[in-house]
């Protein structure tokens, strides 16, 4: 059973914030091979600001097993600043009620093997917490970009998700930008 904490880096407490940087390095650099310009075991970028919101999933030993980052689109955000071409010519959102979801990851707790049902349950738990956190900030939509398979998984979960444009290769991996509507369909599917 995973638990979650949400908040800014300051609200996460220094130990959790530090552990989050290590976890993100392990997932996004070591495992996924993203060529991020960051020191070893310290994955952060310009969008990890004092006002950035995080959702962190952890086990009973406080070991991090998942994370997500939320940024309002009326301030600089990753898609808008670095990957605007993923919009395929569609206008970038720029609104306090549209938030960007990035750095989303979920993994088994250390030294545990999960069944497919447990892994699915953990993924849904984290996306549910992300949607709830964004909604509490006044968001009515999320925009995200990730591997094409994640768009499909969210749809399978009943989330109201639809892509913005044609997928593009980033570091030789197909990536697509998509909307997550925080509407009745999504909140009902996630039990919110």
């Amino acid at each position: 059973m995973l638990n979650t904490v949400t908040g800014t880096a300051e609200q996460l407490k220094p130990a959790m914030a530090q552990a989050l940087s290590v976890y993100r390095y392990r997932i996004f650099v070591d495992k996924m091979g993203w060529p991020l310009d960051c020191p070893k075991d310290h994955e952060q970028d310009n969008f990890d600001r004092p006002d950035t919101l995080y959702v962190v999933a952890h086990d009973e030993h406080k070991q991090i097993c998942g994370c997500a980052r939320l940024l309002p689109t009326h301030k600089p955000y990753l898609l808008g600043e670095i990957f605007p071409h993923l919009m395929g010519g569609a206008p970038l959102p720029h609104s306090p009620d549209v938030w960007e979801l990035s750095r989303f990851a979920i993994s088994p707790p250390p030294n545990e093997r999960l069944t497919a049902a447990q892994a699915w349950s953990n993924s849904i738990m984290l996306i549910t917490k992300v949607v709830e956190t964004a909604r509490n900030q006044g968001a009515c939509r999320l925009i995200a970009f990730s591997a094409v398979g994640n768009e499909r998984l969210l749809k399978r979960a009943g989330v109201n998700v639809h892509r913005v444009s044609v997928p593009q290769l980033i570091d030789d991996k197909p990536v697509v930008a998509f909307w997550i509507e925080i509407d009745h369909q999504t909140t009902s599917a996630l039990g919110l």
């Binding site: 395929g88 094409v148 892509r163 044609v166 697509v176």
Partner: peptide
């Protein structure tokens, strides 16, 4: 307004 269609 390129239409994108994808499937598994």
């Amino acid at each position: 307004s390129q239409v994108s269609v994808g499937w598994a």
